[in-house]
Design a protein around this nucleic acid. Structure first.
Length: 272
DNA sequence: TATCAGGCCCTAG
DNA sequence: CTAGGGCCTGAT
């Protein structure tokens, strides 16, 4: 059990920010976080968190996963004080972190996310894990399912994942799994590429367009300059940044700002 | 009952 | 290169 104090860290916000579809708040302040074949339980009260794992695993895996060494207050301080919209959005989501999720898992997750609702996205991924992932025993005695490797999906017929409720996205996932297994795309290599190159490479995958590629770059590869534009962000841009988002000012960490805006738009901003 | 979700593919012009 | 139809399913 690891007990730590972390400023600008709020698991509820991260859970709702939609970067990770497997993370759950089981009861207020109690979280289960699956990642790849791992799983950890965390209890949060204010800035104090208790990670239900050993120190080695915390340092080596979860600390980088949640980007805990980064000072997000520093990002927030760089926001233009005259930009009241972004100031408000960042205040609302000040506990958000940009995660470092597994590349393969993130590719599949965001292939599934397109033209889809969050609830269904979660169910789809859950279905895939229980159907094709391997069972594991958690330290606290629960069995959970890991995320299946590409090999587990590459041999399926293209529409097999419709049984997991993916609909027309089934073939996107299966074909992408085949590309990974055949090394048509080298995920190891992609993970070492700079943003633009990685984005370009990912867009060669069947079903991966610009928006999905940016989500993968941001939420798995930690390219903070990636700025995924979906319908919510597009609307926010039209309402608040008619002259374009000030990319110059936030160069290199626009993705962090995107998350503040996305979370703010998603969780409702009626209290403006 | 229609519309449209955290898009992308494909085909026409 | 740009525009527009089609696509699974389900929430509203």
């Amino acid at each position: 059990m690891i007990r730590v104090q972390i400023p600008n860290f709020d698991l509820s916000q991260i859970c709702a920010s939609g970067q990770c579809f497997r993370m759950r708040e089981t009861e207020p302040g109690h979280f289960t976080v699956p990642a790849g074949d791992r799983c950890v339980r965390i209890v949060q009260e204010g800035e104090i968190c208790e990670f239900d794992c050993g120190e080695g695993e915390f340092e080596d895996f979860w600390k980088p996963y949640f980007d805990l060494d980064q000072d997000y207050g520093a990002y927030i301080e760089k926001i233009n004080p005259r930009d009241s919209y972004l100031i408000t959005a960042a205040a609302r989501g000040s506990g958000i972190r940009i995660l470092r999720q597994d590349l393969w898992e993130t590719i599949v997750s965001f292939l599934i996310s397109q033209q889809n609702h969050i609830g269904r996205i979660r169910r789809c991924i859950e279905n895939i894990c229980t159907e094709y992932g391997s069972a594991h025993e958690s330290p606290w005695g629960e069995t959970y399912y890991g995320f299946p490797q590409p090999e587990a999906l590459a041999g399926l017929p293209e529409d097999a994942l419709k049984a997991c409720n993916l609909g027309y996205r089934s073939k996107y996932v299966v074909r992408t799994a085949r590309s990974a297994v055949s090394k048509e795309i080298d995920l190891e290599a992609v993970s070492r590429m700079p943003y633009k190159k990685a984005r370009e490479e990912l867009m060669n995958l069947y079903g991966v367009g610009g928006k999905v590629a940016d989500c993968i770059c941001l939420f798995a590869l930690h390219h903070l300059e990636a700025f995924p534009v979906d319908t919510h962000i597009r609307q926010a841009m039209e309402r608040h940044y008619r002259r374009g988002f000030p990319n110059r000012r936030y160069r290199g960490f626009q993705g962090v700002m995107q998350q503040y805006i996305f979370y703010y738009e998603l969780t409702g901003n009626a209290a403006d």
